[in-house]
Design a protein around this nucleic acid. Structure first.
Lengths: 361, 361
DNA sequence: TTGTAAGCGTTATCAT
DNA sequence: ATGATAACGCTTACAA
């Protein structure tokens, strides 16, 4: 219980005070070798009286060659990412699967902070998980590759030999679109996730699609287009309820706020949060869901505040995705090979899809 | 561009290949000393051809005595914490203020994982930010103290000489309660945040309050009780819309679902998310807000999906709180003293509070 | 401008 | 069961 001396207390100090060698003191803390009970107690007593807090993790990490930290690079702003229940669920699975090899998750910035070296260059991480895709993903990957760090990519293509955790975005999207089609809908529109790092809102045009970089968005769009090749779409700037509302208003209303005559009878949203926004916007302008408008989503995550709304959607195993990523990292850290893991969504019938209303024609 | 040799490439290897000393090679990377342009290029070329990824952060951190990592301990489950816009906003301010001294934020687990040593013991962090309070906070603090790490506590009492970032929870809560009182409300109830680590729902009883540990909850409750000393309350298990709905149903409805005759005319919620849930529950049972029921919140954060709802609430400067914590950490890392910082909420009039309805009576 | 050398605090190997 | 010793890969006085 001594107070701060000039210098930091080290293992050597403790050993000296206890009258043992540093190696003996070391094993007392690591517990990896048998130590006589008496010695053990003497060392612990010395440590306590000197206020030694245990081996310095920085020194240990140099010696051991690992820091017990796994870096997570999330594309886009952290605040956006964490407000998305899908991301949160994934992080849950990830931290869980990583618990045995890691003391924690290091959130790495991915913002365009000028010319500085990206944080991954200087962060003492044992492995890296990349989530999503941004313009800086390739350079991040290159750094990680050179540092020889195990890396797993969730929802994104990292190229050659990088284990991925993927979802059948296209198939699932096609499946739910077919469901809408079978109900009889012809005039259908889609609300997509961001197309690129710009996250600019607006109509989904051929040019924008050609320049798009976010694979998830493109895959889900492709699945939708399998069923509705020429259907219009609006892209949102984030997976948020409010964004869904904005997009839906663009699809449903005239400039004066009235409902358009040529409005779609169904809207396929690329996320549940967007779908909830679409529903709110629909209700706002007097359309009932699903009687007047069918709305389907994607993700199947129970977001807070949705109340009793049972959305027709496809459910993705978000926690399992995170867990799979963590498991692959764990394997690679143990020297094994990393494998890609593919997940499948399951359709879930809710109460927001029905046959289209009869129209005067 | 050489492929994996048996051993990791070190600075010494690069120096040897470039025909310079390791110290010279070192400064080429750190850029802290002038190096002849020719030498510089030679070293860089050697590094590139050997596939050297730059100085190993683990070794650097031992030598420098800092890792560039700041640990964040959030009480409770991460997934809960991150779904709260207040936390997210705080994290934003924190990462922002920390950008100059830190490559990232290390999310430390705080779960009751049996007997193991808590992660802070083994994590190579330069400083720690504690958010909220849990039963393990004291032991976390003790470890941090022994390791001599700078620490700042947000919303919680760390005791002696630990800089805190605080909010005028009690005063703000009293202020908004007075607002409700001035409108003429007499039968008022409150919905509180969790009282303790258990997060058990239920009525706010004297016993539960006496055993409560969450300071924020107690402070806001105290402020409310300044104005309504004997008003009933219900405690929620988290700051979520759905929890607000559950709590409100307990306050407003009979067992059979009908509205209670003795229902309150106003509900003071301890967070905006809870308030939104209260409003949803009220609408569910046919009560109009604010005509039939006044609902006020706390936080003033623009959460997604609230649409155009203008809640009457008190606004807390969440981003500024995070930033302040980051700034104190930065100062302490620079050797300066850390200071406590106190923030004040501001009342914001919305559209969810009005005079109580006239009653038969 | 570049090189020499001394650690940073730990852990693992190998004797004893 | 314990101890001497050699790394781990880097940075920075200080010397040349």
């Amino acid at each position: 219980m001594t107070s701060t001396p000039g210098r930091r207390v080290t293992l050597a100090d403790v050993a000296r005070a206890a009258g043992v060698s540093t190696s003996t003191a070391s094993v007392v803390f690591s517990g990896k070798v048998n130590v006589a009970e008496a010695t053990r107690r003497r060392v612990l007593a010395a440590a306590a009286s000197l206020g030694y807090a245990g081996p310095d993790p920085r020194a240990a990490s140099l010696r051991l060659g690992r820091s017990g930290i796994v870096g997570v690079v999330i594309s886009g702003e952290l605040r956006h990412a964490f407000l998305d229940p899908v991301t949160t669920a994934m992080m849950d699975g990830l931290t869980d699967a990583l618990a045995s090899v890691s003391t924690g998750i290091l959130l790495l910035r991915d913002d365009p902070r000028g010319d500085e070296m990206p944080p991954i260059t200087e962060a003492p991480v044992d492995a890296v998980v990349l989530i999503g895709w941004s313009g800086r993903t390739p350079s991040a990957l290159e750094i990680v590759r050179r540092r020889g760090l195990p890396v797993v990519m969730i929802e994104g293509d990292a190229g050659e030999g990088i284990p991925r955790v993927t979802l059948d975005n296209r198939e699932a999207s096609a499946a739910i679109s077919r469901h809408v089609s079978r109900l009889g809908h012809v005039d259908v529109a889609t609300v997509t996730l961001p197309l690129d790092a710009d996250r600019r809102r607006g109509a989904v045009t051929a040019e924008r699609v050609a320049a798009a970089t976010v694979e998830v968005t493109l895959d889900r769009l492709a699945g939708f287009r399998e069923v509705y090749p020429d259907a219009p779409g609006v892209t949102a700037s984030a997976s948020l309820v409010d964004e869904g509302m904005i997009a839906a208003r663009a699809l449903l209303t005239e400039a004066d706020g009235g409902v358009r005559a040529d409005r779609p009878t169904a809207i396929v949203a690329q996320s549940d949060l967007l779908a909830v926004g679409v529903i709110r916007a629909a209700e706002e302008c007097g359309l009932r869901v699903p009687e007047d408008l069918t709305v389907v989503g994607f993700d199947g995550i129970a977001a807070d505040g949705l109340g009793s709304l049972r959305l027709t959607t496809v459910v993705q195993p978000a926690v399992a995705k995170g867990r799979a990523a963590g498991e692959q990292i764990t394997r690679m850290l143990a020297g094994g090979p990393g494998e890609s893991v593919h997940f499948t969504c399951t359709f879930r019938e809710g109460e927001t899809a029905a046959a289209p209303p009869h129209r005067a024609g």
